[in-house]
Structures are given as structure tokens and as C-alpha cells.
């Protein structure tokens, strides 16, 4: 851990789909205030938003930490959900285990994880069935 990094911490409420995305909105505001470029902000906030939605749909919520260092913005999403059974499959566009009611809300098309990868420069998924998932993403300046 680099102590000089600027960090933001959020708890993601897993019980309320309506409020999902609030942390991403806050991050967007915070990054704008400290003068990060709009293109970087856009990538970070979209990737984090997809992650937040995933945590609400699949894992009953979790935590989100965003760190700003000299060369990148790092997003760490942690949950204690069921874990991802097959990461390769989950990374395929169109593969989804989301229930039908989520699709009627405009999500669950199997684009979440692929989108997170698309908008970030690095993405690492650590997952354990029955224990949870930790996703670390980096967007470089």
C-alpha cells in the first residue's frame, strides 16, 4: 500500500437496486474535483458502475475503494457473495446468470464484466466459491 494515495471508501447496499450506482456517482464527482481528465473519469465511473450493479445483483452488496495515485486510478470491489463459478465463461459477452427480473430492469445482458475490462487497462478477478469476489481494476493516466 502506498500511503500517499488518495482514497475513497464506499459501502454498496445490496438490498436496494434503486440506489445502486450511488458510489460511482460520488467517485465521478470526487475525481472531477481533483482535476482528473474527463476521459479517465468516464472510464473509471463506467467500470465501477458496472461493478456496483454486479455486486447488487449477485452478491448482496459489498465495498468499493478507489485510490488515486501518481500514474493511475485503482478501483477495488469486494463482496462476500457466492463467488464466480467459471471466470472465463463470465467474461464472455452475453453470458449471464442474472435472474429475469434484472433483465427487465435493463441489466443482466452478460455485459458487466466484459464492460469492466473494456473500460480499464488492467483487471484482476480473485474469487472463491461460497466466500466472495475481489475485483481490482486500474485505469492509467
Amino acid at each position: 500500500m502506498n500511503d500517499e494515495r488518495l482514497g475513497f471508501h464506499f459501502d454498496v447496499d445490496g438490498t436496494n437496486f434503486t440506489s445502486a450506482g450511488q458510489a460511482s456517482v460520488e467517485v465521478k464527482k470526487n475525481l472531477r474535483q481533483i482535476g482528473i481528465s474527463p476521459e479517465i473519469i468516464r472510464k473509471v465511473s463506467i467500470a465501477m458502475y458496472e461493478g456496483e450493479i454486479n455486486m447488487v445483483i449477485h452478491a448482496g452488496g459489498g465495498t468499493a475503494d478507489v485510490y488515486v495515485s501518481e500514474n493511475c486510478v485503482e478501483i477495488v470491489l469486494r463482496d462476500e457473495g457466492p463467488g464466480i463459478a467459471n471466470v472465463d465463461l463470465a467474461m464472455q459477452e452475453g453470458f449471464s446468470t442474472a435472474p429475469d427480473n434484472i433483465r427487465s430492469l435493463g441489466f443482466g445482458a452478460g455485459m458487466g464484466l466484459p464492460n469492466m475490462k473494456r473500460y480499464t487497462d488492467e483487471m484482476k478477478i480473485e474469487t472463491q466459491l461460497g466466500k466472495g469476489t475481489c475485483i481490482t481494476m486500474r485505469v492509467f493516466f
Binding site: G106, F107, A109, G110, M111, N115
Partner: peptide
């Protein structure tokens, strides 16, 4: 109508 597609 699919927000995932809008984001993608």
C-alpha cells in the same frame, strides 16, 4: 432499453 448495451 438495455442499459448494459448503452454502457458497452
Amino acid at each position: 432499453d438495455m442499459m448494459s448495451d448503452v454502457l458497452a
